[in-house]
Design a protein around this nucleic acid. Structure first.
Ligand code: MN
Ligand code: MN
Ligand code: MN
Ligand code: MN
Lengths: 238, 238
DNA sequence: TTCATTTGTTAGATTTGTCTAACAGAAATA
DNA sequence: TATTTCTGTTAGACAAATCTAACAAATGAA
């Protein structure tokens, strides 16, 4: 798989990023360091170095130290910047743990387009220029503070059969919450009640053209935005 | 490469997602539809279907229609939800074009962890519950409205040699802006002035342990947060 | 200088994912 | 019914990325 932006694969970008990090501290980069940093066997590093040298991204000859070319330095630096940007987004904005953020960022960094990258950077500039907003996110948006339930939210179980509503939030414990999110119950999505449930009867709802069954307790935790109850109108995804 | 969450590769997740989308409209899914949707040759679809059937994610026998199993349906739905979440983040929050967002989202969706996914969904709930914030992002954060330069921002060129500052924003046209961002000049990053430049002499700055040269015009567009000018303190990345 | 240890390479295998070209089966049409 | 067209599979090739096991070179110690 070739990355559109750099013309090389995600794996090779990771090798460059790793070499860059090593060189920023160690003055020389060796196969062994790279293997350890990336947690692959040294036998995997050698062919990767050959591929990178073929593409003129590193200077490499058998058994010698490894150095980045101008082109390689550029890709390495850009990859690391993406890594940092994504990792900061995940930790600072979403509140993900450092470790998880590192791993997610390093997986996604290879697929961010140049424009998404620029806009994400702009998002941080935007936040930093508005301390009141930054504060709102810092204080109001963390694991401990449960989201305040707005005054006029409607419950999915209160919907008329055949009518629709837009999801505002999921009000449930982590497990049920994740199940619902995995199933597509995310804010802004339109859900239509096909058949109401009862004590032992699951609710049937339609979401993105697919019918799904929800037990009454689970349906209870889906809260909808008030007003605007048109049927058959889907405002996301064509 | 095996995705931590679902135990299958990103490519196979895309096949499941595609089958899901087709079934939501077409009642049956055929090799041809899948090949067209994913823009691969039909000869690539057959072995993918075999791999999916081996893993019990689809029901498939030679020359017959393709159907998702319970397990396959679950992964398909979750993949599509990730796709939607990321795509909405890119379009609604960052203001990326629809097309670019679709492509970025479909590339990144396979690598989001369960917790990042849940937090991203929470971010939308959070925004929707605070219309004033939503409005701020909608109006203040788009391509057309250039970010207001805060009152007391410091320019990189005003830094004392040896002293540091945290980047607040890049104030430059798209091209220079992207170059700087690719080079690691993103909000919050500490930059240290190593050697000031002159009319024809580039500035040398240190960023993440690496020295970089910046022409005076370009250095001019790096604006720093006021106060807090300690040297050698790096608040991002260990 | 010789031997042991560390480091790096090669050989050979495996999995995944793609392609083109050739072929086979099914469906539609004449 | 016979033939054409559409659809799907197979065969064979290739590139990328990894592994283990065996080997080779370089380094360091005795
Ligand atoms: Mn990576
Ligand atoms: Mn990375
Ligand atoms: Mn995808
Ligand atoms: Mn997708």
């Amino acid at each position: 798989m070739t990355n559109a932006d750099s013309g090389i694969t995600g794996s090779l970008e990771d090798y460059l990023e790793t070499i860059y990090r090593i060189l920023a501290r160690n003055s020389v980069a060796r196969v062994k360091d790279i293997a350890e940093n990336m947690e692959v066997s040294p036998a995997s590093v050698t062919p990767a170095m050959k591929r990178l040298a073929d593409k003129q991204l590193i200077r490499y000859s058998k058994r010698s130290y490894i150095d980045l070319t101008e082109k390689g330095l550029f890709i390495a630096r850009r990859t690391m910047t993406r890594h940092k940007l994504l990792s900061r987004f995940l930790t600072e904005i979403l509140g993900i743990s450092r470790k998880q953020a590192e791993s997610d960022a390093c997986a996604m960094e290879h697929f961010l387009s140049e424009s998404s990258m620029e806009r994400l950077a702009a998002f941080f500039e935007f936040l930093a220029a508005r301390p009141e907003l930054q504060a709102l996110i810092d204080t109001g948006f963390d694991e401990s503070a449960p989201l305040k339930i707005g005054p006029e939210l409607l419950c999915l179980t209160d919907l008329e059969p055949g009518s629709s509503g837009r999801i505002a939030m999921i009000n449930a414990g982590q497990q049920v919450r994740r199940e619902l999110i995995d199933s597509g119950f995310i804010q802004g999505t339109t859900v239509t009640l096909i058949r109401p449930g009862g004590t032992d009867l699951p609710f049937i709802v339609n979401l993105d053209g697919y019918d799904q069954h929800l037990s009454p307790e689970i349906a209870e935790s889906v809260l909808l935005h008030p007003h605007r109850e048109q049927t058959g109108e889907d405002d996301n995804e064509k």
